[in-house]
Design a binder for these strands. Structure first.
Length: 425
RNA sequence: GGAGAGAUGGCAGAGUGGUCGAAUGCGACAGUCUUGAAAACUGUUGUACGAGCAAUCGUACCGAGGGUUCGAAUCCCUCUCUCUCCGCCA
């Protein structure tokens, strides 16, 4: 949600900034028009209400003819007000509807671009492994080692699901737990949130599109399966006023993530890359506006640190305006090298959503001076099921086995995945 | 799933149709007193929207939404949530 006051005061800025995200300038004009109509009506209603209040105070002391007369007057005022209120509700609905469509303006530093092709590679880190054989894709490696069963998952649940089996089940759990601990060590507060939320939480974080969400018991419970724990975590402080002295507030959370992926038919159909259900450790930070940029860099550094410890080669991508989405002003993707696919693919990402989500969710901070501002909100992936893919592809061996990153040896209880390492069932 | 109770300011808690944005207590903040602190006393202490350069003024908000009324925290309807007891359950 954008600040209507800011929009009113500086429409040129928003016109320019939103154009970079592909928003037609006409929408801004429509918003301003709707805003003016809405304010006009509001003012007239308030004038009538003021008169009502004034007369109401005198009412008890009136009697007889005088009272009759005043009552009659008030009846007309009441009716007029009611009529105006109907109009006002309508105009407010129109304004709200327009405002809700507008995305968060991109940061000045965000590169322009229409799609992910406009993304800018910032730097490349890590050593790309060399193979004296043709490296395989993750699903092939995993199926051969009896780690992944997508045939049976298709039978049971349909396309884009999987059974993670044997060592891979352990590896993913280890990865999640390790990341949760690592980030907790950096001062983030570990949290397991609800995985079903109300509509408001999904809306507030900017993920309400129908193609994205599963709804549980439509018309009955109307709960949404979370697509990321960002949804319940950002909503954690909805309708609250936080204190400046408590800022920044950092959380690291675990959740399974459920996504319909309805807009991606035919893309990444094999294996674990794009599925309806996966797991993720997410970081969410609430802070003062002036802290947001530094914290964004901090989140990026932390994500890099995690990939580095795993030994996964990656590149940092500055995501362009056309690929930012509704809520983010600035976003970095970390893309890992996948030797089997022979390309860099998105593993984790971190977004600075400024005050876009906190306006929708009404999350504010009271400064020491007494001033109240909307919180700035950032998020970032610590790890997800995708780095598991990167591990499989980068550490595959000629004999079909897979070595495990050293940092996970102890948690996993094994250093290598070979055929029949764990008893198969 | 069954039975009951409830939702008011940071918290506790009064208020059952008009002068109620809302008593009182606690907390917090400021001041007086004190070498300092405590105690005591005095004062201040919600949010949003709109108008105004500003001081300020107006309006709305007593879980949410609707209704009755000239007028609703108060009456009516719907919904949500919380608590207690019973049952079931990881």
């Amino acid at each position: 949600m954008l600040d209507i006051k800011a929009l009113r005061e500086n429409p040129e800025y928003f016109q320019k900034a939103l154009k970079r995200k592909g928003v037609d300038g006409k929408v801004i004009q429509d918003v301003l028009k709707a805003d003016e109509l809405h304010r006009n009506l509001l003012q007239r209603i308030e004038e009538l209400a003021a008169r009502q209040n004034e007369v109401s105070k005198k009412m008890p002391s009136l009697s007889g003819n005088e009272k009759e007369k005043v009552l009659a007057d008030m009846k007309t005022i009441s009716a007029e007000k009611k009529e105006l209120q109907t109009q006002q509700e309508q105009s407010e609905g129109v304004l709200q509807g327009l405002l809700e469509q507008l995305p968060n303006p991109p940061s000045d530093s965000t590169p322009d671009g229409k799609s992910d092709e406009g993304n800018v590679i910032v730097r490349t880190e890590g050593k790309i492994p060399k193979f004296d054989f043709t490296p395989r894709e993750h699903w092939e490696i995993a199926e051969k080692l009896n780690l992944l069963d997508t045939e049976r998952s298709a039978k049971v649940s349909g396309a884009r699901f999987y059974y993670l089996r044997n060592e891979l089940a352990i590896l993913q759990q280890a990865l999640m737990f390790w990341a949760l601990q690592e980030v907790t060590k950096k001062g983030f507060s570990p949290t397991i949130p609800p995985f079903l939320t109300r509509k408001q939480a999904i809306y507030g974080t900017g993920y309400l599109a129908k193609e994205e969400n599963y709804i549980v018991n439509p018309g009955e419970d109307d709960l949404y399966l979370v697509g990321t724990s960002e949804v319940p975590m950002v909503s954690f402080y909805a309708d609250e006023i936080l204190e400046e002295s408590d800022m920044p507030q950092k959380f690291v959370s675990y959740s399974p993530c459920f996504r319909r992926e309805a807009g991606s038919y035919g893309k990444d159909t094999k294996g674990m890359f794009r599925v309806h259900q996966f797991e993720k450790i997410e970081m969410v930070v609430f802070c003062l506006p002036e802290q947001a940029e530094d914290i964004h860099q901090e989140l990026l550094a932390l994500e890099e640190h995690l990939l580095q410890q795993l030994g996964i080669p990656y590149q940092v991508v500055d995501v362009c305006t056309g690929d930012l989405g509704l809520s983010a002003a600035k976003k970095y993707d970390l893309e890992a090298w996948l030797p089997g696919q022979k390309q860099y693919r998105e593993m984790t990402s971190t977004s600075n959503c400024t005050d876009f989500q906190s306006r929708r969710l009404n999350i504010r901070i009271r400064r020491k001076s007494g001033e109240i501002v909307h919180a700035h909100v950032l998020n970032g992936t610590a790890v997800s099921s995708r780095p598991v893919i990167a591990i499989l592809e980068n550490f595959q061996q000629k004999d079909g086995s897979v070595e495990i990153p050293k940092i996970l040896h102890e948690l996993c209880g094994f250093k290598k995945i070979e055929k029949k390492c764990l008893p198969e069932t």
